[in-house]
Structure formats: structure tokens, C-alpha cells
Design a binder for these strands. Structure first.
Lengths: 244, 244
DNA sequence: CAATCTTGGATCGTATACAATTTTTACTCA
DNA sequence: TGAGTAAAAATTGTATACGATCCAAGATTG
């Protein structure tokens, strides 16, 4: 019951390559693995990503690790400090607000675009995605559930077939994942919310206006589900988080 | 009469550092110089940016040049092809449409934000900026005029004090510069248009709604000023373009 | 003569070595 | 004991060297 996930992951990977100007060759692998780990909350915000350590784990030289970290820095998942190294990004409260403001502007517009052009095949794929998300959630794998929940949004952007918006949304979703890791308030994982299903409904009817409206309120809802107060930092070890 | 430009340039530089996760140390210099050259249309789209050549020109090793090129690739100004190297990006017609659609969505919203919070000092700065643009235009320096015209938009984003939007807009403006280089139709440089002045008017009155409306029609106007047909490629030499 | 194959040069991808900077540790002295 | 300082360890920044890939020109063959 954990298998339907794989195809979604591979999908995500190829799309990443398409949208961002990502590093080439081996660096892309590392980039993707680190990103997945961060998005599944295996790596907590603020964690140091030592070049030597990452390189040793993935069997690569510092040169290529450096390229990966730089790429992730550009997408907002990693913060680099001069002469101090790379860390999993720890979005500030201010950035949290800004990210969700941006999402509230862009994603509804993109949902509208998607509703107009979505095909039956894509509808089925989205349904499958929701099933996988549901399964992950009920199997207790919070990390993967959140990862998939984010992917749902990027898939909509891909359906809208607008690469510029898709790239923006991808970056925003990534950062949202970190923000949720830091500031999520409600114990009920609201991403299981009915918003995604309501959206599916609008898509099936090709009702762009409805999709836009639903998406907007969904994001406003997510935003208001955050508890934007200062939190103390966590400091796990990298090896212990990734080696598994 | 060419002096007022300098402060704007330095300003731009520090802001870049703030918004993007840019490389550190010497790489940032090269990044900035290349970006400026591209934005002033000294480097035409499609031009090859050989690592050795760039490194020799700026007196840096390939390592740091590589980092710079990667950074520029992430902001959309440079395209990297595996095992072939880096080129000044040559946005497709499709990307051109997408970029201006994105601008038409985001920039009006940001203009509204800016109108609400703009200070007298910032108003004066924008006025000075328009003067500099005007001067560059009438001194025949098209490249610099276009560069400054773009900066006008990013300055508004900075005034709105919204880093996420500012980052997006910066990237969009950069790509717009390339798009204009490739597809501009009108011989009258419409960036001298009255839109910028009209916008200033709305800012002075802190009329957000008006600012939003003006900005939107300004960008739609720019979009329609493009001639989106296939164009042949140009191939200048890098040395001859930068050594001056 | 045209098409294909081979070969040489140029350029990129990656690893490694060294220099510069930061962080930690150990030590002295009040 | 605690603060200040200095030396040592660890980590990043940068340069260079080597192997891999691509491109173009010239040779070869049908």
C-alpha cells in the first residue's frame, strides 16, 4: 500500500529538471535526494549540511555537493552563510507570511488556468495522487503525507502548463513545507482537508472560477493555520537522519 | 549628466545580494558584472559564455566562474547545456508570453502594496530614477536606458518591502530584458511611456487601487508591444563585447 | 563526388590539493 | 573559578589537474 508513491516521486524529479536550471549529472541526484529528505521533514530546519558529510554520505566529491547545495539555496530550501556553510533553511515569521501571500495570489490564478485545460487522464492522475496521500496519512507516515500534499499543488501548476508559474509555485511549496515544519499549529493535519476534493470537483466541471475561489480560500486557510511565534531551534545530526 | 546612474547601480547590487541566495565572495562580483552586461544588452541572447574566457576576462578561476554562471542560470539569465556550456539565455516565444502573464498578475498587486507604504524619501528617489532614465535615453545609451527602466520596476517591489515578490519580480524583469532584446517591435522605446509617470502620480496620492490599475495596463501594453515571431540568432564575440 | 569514419582540439565535469577563515580547545593570569 | 587569549582543529573558499565528452576538420571509401 505504499507503492503508488513511487511514480509520483519520479514524476516530480523529471519536472524539477525541466523547470529549474538545475545542476547536471550527479549533482542533480544529490539535489533531489536532499530536497526529498527536507520536504519529508527528515532534515529539520536549521540543521547544518556540512559539505564533507553530505559528500561522504552520497559518495561524491565536495565539488558536486557544493553545486547541489547552491541549487537548493536558490530554490529557498537551503541557506548558505559565507565561510560558515550550508544549513536547512529556517524561514522567518515574516517570510512565512510573505510566502503564503504569494501563494494566495498566484495559485488561484493557476488553478483557474488548469481547470480550463485539464484532461481526463490528468484528472485520474490527480485522483490517484489523493489516494496515495490518504494512504500515507493513515499509515502514519506524516512526512510522506506532507510531501505528497505539496506535490498536489505543483501538479496543478504542471497541468496549467505554465512553466514560469510552475517554477514559482514549486519554490513556494518547498518553502511552505519548511514553514509548516516550524510553525504548524493545528494537531489535525488539515491538509487532509476537503479543499483538495472540492478542487477536484471544480476541475471535473472545468469550472475555472470555482477552482480559483476554492484554491484561494484553501491557501488563506493554510495561512491561518500557522502559529507565527518564535520557536527554539532543533539540532539533530545529519548522519542519523539520512543514513537510514 | 551620466552620474546619477551610479547610485542606482550600487543599490541594485546590494539588493541582489539580499534577495537571491547568491554565491559568496568573488563569485558575486562576476555574477553582478555579467548580469549588468546582459541587462544592458552588451551580451546578446544565445552568446556562448565559455568558462575559460569569462575567467580570463575577470581574472578568476573556473571554479568561481562556474558558481556565477550557475547562479545566473537559476535566475533565468543564462542557460546551461550539459557538456556544452553556458549561453546567454534566449527565451522562447512561449516563455515570453508566460513571463509577461506572470508580471501582469504580480506587479499590479505589488504596486498596490507599494502605494500604501511609500515614503516621501522613496518618492524622491523614484523621481531621481526617472530623471536618470530620461537622461540615458536622450544621450543615446539605449542599453543603460533599458537597464534603468527595468530597475524602476524592481525598486517598486523593494518599496513594497516584500522580499518574496521582489525576488520573483527581479527574475521576471531580467528575463523581460532578454525578451525585449529578442522580440521588441516598436521603434519608439515605449519604456519612456507615460505609464511610469502616471504611476508616480498614484504613488504620491497613496492611491493603491489606481497604482494597481495603471501597472496592470502598463504591463499588458509592454506585452502587446512585442513581435512574437521566430528570429535568427546573433553571434557576437565575448571578448569584444566585455573588454571595453 | 558525397557520405561516413577517424582523429585532433577544445571545453566541460569532477577530484584533489592548498589557502583563508572560523570555531573550538587549552592555557594563563587575575 | 572565570575571563581573556592564543594555538590547534575543522570547515569553507579557491585553484589546478586530469579524465570524459563534444565538435569540427580532414581522411577514407563506396
Amino acid at each position: 500500500m505504499t507503492k503508488p508513491v513511487t511514480s509520483a516521486e519520479l514524476d516530480q524529479r523529471s519536472k524539477l529538471h525541466e523547470v529549474f536550471a538545475l545542476p547536471q549529472g550527479r549533482a542533480l541526484d544529490i539535489c533531489f535526494k536532499l530536497q526529498t529528505a527536507i520536504l519529508e521533514h527528515k532534515l529539520t530546519p536549521g540543521l547544518k549540511l556540512s559539505e564533507d558529510e553530505v559528500g561522504e554520505i552520497y559518495g561524491a566529491s565536495r565539488t558536486v555537493v557544493r553545486a547541489s547545495l547552491q541549487a537548493l539555496a536558490h530554490s529557498g530550501l537551503v541557506a548558505m552563510e559565507k565561510n560558515r556553510g550550508a544549513f536547512v533553511a529556517k524561514p522567518s515569521i515574516r517570510e512565512a507570511h510573505e510566502v503564503f501571500q504569494a501563494r494566495a495570489l498566484i495559485e488561484p490564478a493557476v488553478a483557474r488556468l488548469a481547470a480550463d485545460v485539464i484532461t481526463d487522464r490528468q484528472l485520474a492522475q490527480l485522483h490517484a495522487h489523493l489516494d496515495a496521500e490518504h494512504a500515507a496519512l493513515h499509515s502514519g507516515d506524516m512526512g510522506k503525507a506532507l510531501f505528497l500534499s505539496g506535490n498536489f499543488h505543483t501538479e496543478i501548476a504542471d497541468i496549467a502548463d505554465h512553466r514560469v508559474f510552475a517554477g514559482m509555485i514549486r519554490s513556494l511549496i518547498s518553502r511552505s513545507s519548511l514553514i509548516i515544519a516550524l510553525y504548524w499549529k493545528r494537531s489535525d493535519t488539515a491538509c487532509e482537508s476537503h479543499s483538495h476534493h472540492a478542487l477536484m470537483n471544480a476541475f471535473e466541471k472545468h469550472d475555472g472560477a470555482a477552482a480559483e475561489k476554492i484554491q484561494k480560500s484553501h491557501i488563506v486557510d493554510l495561512h491561518s493555520g500557522l502559529d507565527l511565534k518564535e520557536k527554539p531551534a532543533g539540532g539533530t545530526s545529519l548522519n542519523e537522519a539520512l543514513r537510514g
